[in-house]
Simulated scan of single mutants.
Amino acid sequence: MIHFVLLINRQGKVRLTKWYSPYTQKERTKVIRELSGMVLNRAPKLCNFVEWRGYKVVYKRYASLYFCICIDQDDNELEILEIIHHFVGILDQYFGSVCELDLIFNFHKAYYILDEILIAGELLESSKKTVSRLIDSQDSLVETAQQEASVISNVIAQITE
């Protein structure tokens, strides 16, 4: 089971977190501090798996971001690396070569994409086509709602004049 997902940059700033196990805010802060220090200080030639507090942390660096996932000891690390790669692939497809700024300014989309891939710490959807189709339909719903809100605002503005 996946316990949490962290995206941190090279300076240790958190760009995205998703918690699937209960942690208090104090524990979350401590976990982020410990893991960011541990992962960022590792040499690039070392493996992408770290044992930590009776769990395994699987991480992968893409550009300036580290994608970290905490799993149970008996889970398959290679499967988690594939999940990370799958998530990054969908982010790349959606944003067109995803970068840190995309995640900063469109964090809600990144969370939505992650929620389409993982649910309750388990892989939900492994098909990029399906996830892309779901994201596109969500985007069209948001666009329709924004257009309707704009029309309503114009009608209200005309009535109040």
Rank of each mutant, 00 (worst) to 15 (best):
V50T: 10
G37H: 08
I80A: 00
N41H: 13
T160F: 13
G96W: 05
H85W: 00
Y66N: 04
T24H: 08
Q25N: 14
L40W: 03
G89Y: 03
Q138A: 14
S137D: 14
I32F: 06
R53I: 02
V5W: 00
Q138F: 11
S21A: 15
E125N: 14
Q93D: 13
A157Q: 14
N48L: 06
I90Y: 02
E122D: 08
L103D: 04
D75I: 02
A145C: 11
I32P: 03
W52V: 04
L6T: 01
K56E: 03
I156Q: 10
S36L: 05
S137E: 14
C99K: 03
L78R: 07
D115S: 04
E143H: 12
T160H: 15
I113R: 00
N154P: 03
I71Y: 00
I104S: 09
K60M: 05
I80H: 00
I156N: 11
I69Q: 02
T29G: 12
A110T: 04
N9K: 06
Q93W: 11
I90R: 02
K13C: 10
D102S: 10
P22V: 13
G37P: 05
I156K: 13
S132Y: 04
Q158G: 04
I156P: 04
A63Q: 08
L101Q: 12
K60E: 09
I8S: 07
P44A: 12
N9I: 06
F95M: 09
D75T: 06
Y111L: 14
L118M: 13
Y112P: 01
Q158C: 10
I156G: 05
E34H: 15
